[in-house]
Each structure stands twice: as C-alpha cells, then as structure tokens.
Write a protein that binds this DNA or RNA. Structure first.
Lengths: 203, 203
DNA sequence: TATTAATGAGTGATCAATCACTTATTAATG
DNA sequence: CATTAATAAGTGATTGATCACTCATTAATA
C-alpha cells in the first residue's frame, strides 16, 4: 500500500467517452490522457494496451448491467412483466448515462468475441424468459431468437433515434409503450393488447 | 480518353470489406491497396482521401438501395404489404451481399452526418408509410418513429444475430415471420394476426 | 504520339508504447 | 513522535513503427 490510485477512474471515463464518439481505433492515447488530466504513462500503469483498456471497461460494465437485468427479471412474477422490466432497465440506463449505454449496446462489436463462452448476454437472457413464456403458453411459438431480436432491436433502434434526435425526451417515458407494442407482437393471444401494465414504467 | 479505368471498382470493394471488418479508422490505405491488387497511388487518383473513399461508397450504395426500397413500396397497394416488401428488401440485400448490408445498415455512424438534409433514409420512408396507415385507420396511433424503430430494429437486430451465428440460414426465409410479428404489433385491430400474407416472402 | 491510368518508393506526421525518473503514501524503527 | 526505508502511482520526453498521402516515372490505350 503506497500512493493511492486517483487517476484510473478518470482515464476510464475519458476513454469511454472518446471511444463512443470516435471509435477505439480512432481515439489516440494522447487524447485519452489529455481529457483525463493524466499522463500517457499513467494509462499504461493500469492497462496493458489501449485495447485492454477498452475491454476492461466493457467487461466490467456489461457484467454489472447484466446483474441488474437478472435481478429485475427475477423480481417479477410473470413473463410479461419480466420483459417490460428489462425494457425499462435499458431505457433507465440510457437516461442515466447515455455514453455508457452507447458503449455497451451500440458501439464496437470488436469486443464481443472476448466474452467468455458462458457469459450471458442480454439477448440470451431474453431467450431464456421467452422460452419459459412459450412453455407456459403465453408466448407465440416462433423461434425465440426472432422474438428476442424484436425486443432488443426495438429498444436499440429507439435509442439510436434518440441519439440522432429523431425522438426526444426521456426514453423511460416510452418504456410502457415499447413493452406494450412488443407484447402485442409476441403474446400468444391478442388478449394482452388491452391489459394495462403498470410495471413497464416502474421498477 | 486514353488508358481505361480498371482498378477503381476493386479498390471500392476491398475498402468496403475492410471497413466492415475493422472500421474505417482501423483500416490502412496500404491494406486496401494490397487487397485490391492495386497501388496506393491509384487509390488517390480516384479518391481525395480515405474518408472520401468511405463516403463515396456509402452514399452511392445507399442511394441505390433507397431507390429499390421506394420502388418496392410504390409497387404495393396497401400499407401492410408495403411494409413486408421493405422487410423483404432488407433481407434480400443481406442474403445477396452481407458485406454491403453491414456497411450500409450496421456500420459506422460516422458517415451519417454527411447525408444531405433532404436525403430520405429507410426510417424516414417507413414513417411516411406508417403515417399513411394511421390515416387509413390501419395502423395503431402511436408515435410513428416508435413503430418505425420496431420494424427497423427487428430487421437490423436479426441481421446482427445472423452475423454472430445466433440464427442461421437465409434471412429471406424469415421475412414472412418478421413481417407478421411486426404487423401484429402495429396494426390497429388484432385482425391482422390471422391474415396469411404471401407478399412477405415474395417480390 | 498524346493522354491518362497505374505505380511504388518516398515523406513528414503521428501513433502506441516505453522507461528512467519523481512524488505521495504507508510501515518500520529509534 | 521523528526519521527513514519501502512501495507503488504518476510523469512526459523519447522511440521505432506505421500512418495517410505525394510525385516522378512507367505502361497502356486511342
């Protein structure tokens, strides 16, 4: 235990912001250091390479986000509300930290291959829940990957629209509408259309 | 006109393949020339900079794709079949040329800002059709951007799943299922659920 | 032969990464 | 408590490699 670490967090934050704005390859180590108010050498004290820096941010943040997704799903009793809980969680993350959201969900597929083979990604969690719903006869019998693509895709694309100003305001406010539309698509009967779900916007 | 141009197309193709695989910033001019079997200097005869090369490919191909999207939509009589025609068109492009699809739809938002302000993008075309459908009472009265995000998002995410092996085979084979599910979500009544659409998979 | 495409060695700038060094903090000793 | 040794964070000039881009020259066509 010697001198305490004070620069590392700032380096991670600055790096993430630049990676989202310009891509990993398009960001220089000098820029990161400058934005973080640190020396380039400090970066290399904590991270082996620039790619490692990108990876460590990605992995730790995705792990943490997946834990909250799983907690949300586990706390809900039925498939319908599990799904709207997950949708809410995505939008909550965007509203709280758009840069982090972009880094985890929209950016750089160049990091995905590094994930451990048994790492549960958001689409995989969705498939798990959807299969459960199909077993219970609540979800339509289509390829669960297709249903998962519908939910993940709608959420991700709405965020892209938000980034580019095609939609405005807090995405959390859209949570209920997105859940409702997605559920209309994937529910077995069309009875779900008129259900007034209150979990979509809450927590 | 003396010596004819023979290398340009190969440079564009090689560049696009590398841009999709490694990003624009992550691709070097030397790599492009090598893969194209041309000299670096030849690249600069036809394109002012590397970024210009990326942009010219993007703009010309997107313009051409938008023309076929509009033609498809125009050739269909009703909103339901216009939308499934567009979905089919996306999947057809992926099956025919996954690299081009990835370059146009999945990659590099760094080029989007260069589009002329009046350029009609795929989401904008969808919104146009959806608003028409709302006017005719066929489409649910939600923010058309949200409905457009649902369709565009589902299509794009399914392609990402295809790229990463989460789904396999020709995406065109999924066209009908995707259209049907999306229509369930966005149609005004739930009557669309049992309609057997034959346009989704065809032309 | 006039014209233009194609070439590839060459160029200065910039890159990621290094390393000898300084500074802040804790632990040990009297 | 005062002093000092040990430790690890932080620094920034430096480096060799690599980058995007140029230009004098050669090759191919009308």
């Amino acid at each position: 235990m010697a001198r305490p670490v004070v620069k590392r967090e700032g380096i991670e934050r600055a790096a993430m912001e630049l990676f989202v704005a310009k891509g990993i390859a398009g960001t220089t180590t000098r820029e990161i250091a400058e934005r973080a108010g640190a020396a380039e050498g400090t970066m290399y004290r904590h991270f082996k390479t620039k790619e490692d820096l990108a990876w460590e941010i990605y992995f730790s943040q995705l792990t943490s986000f997946m834990e909250s997704l799983r907690a949300t799903a586990a706390a809900r009793p039925d498939v319908r509300s599990k799904l709207s809980g997950i949708v809410s969680e995505f939008f909550r993350l965007y509203d709280a930290d758009p840069v982090l959201y972009s880094y985890l969900v929209l950016a750089e597929h160049s990091l995905l291959w590094r994930l451990p083979k048994d790492f549960q990604t958001p689409p995989a969690l969705l498939v798990e829940i959807l299969v459960e719903g199909q077993g219970a006869g609540e979800v339509v019998k289509e390829d669960p990957n297709l249903l998962s693509a519908l939910i993940m895709g709608t959420v991700a694309r709405l965020t892209i629209f938000r980034v580019y100003g095609r939609v405005t305001g807090e995405l959390s406010a859209r949570s209920e509408a997105v859940s409702r539309l997605c559920w209309r698509a994937i529910c077995k009967t069309s009875a779900g259309n008129e259900s007034t779900d209150r979990n979509g916007g809450a927590g």
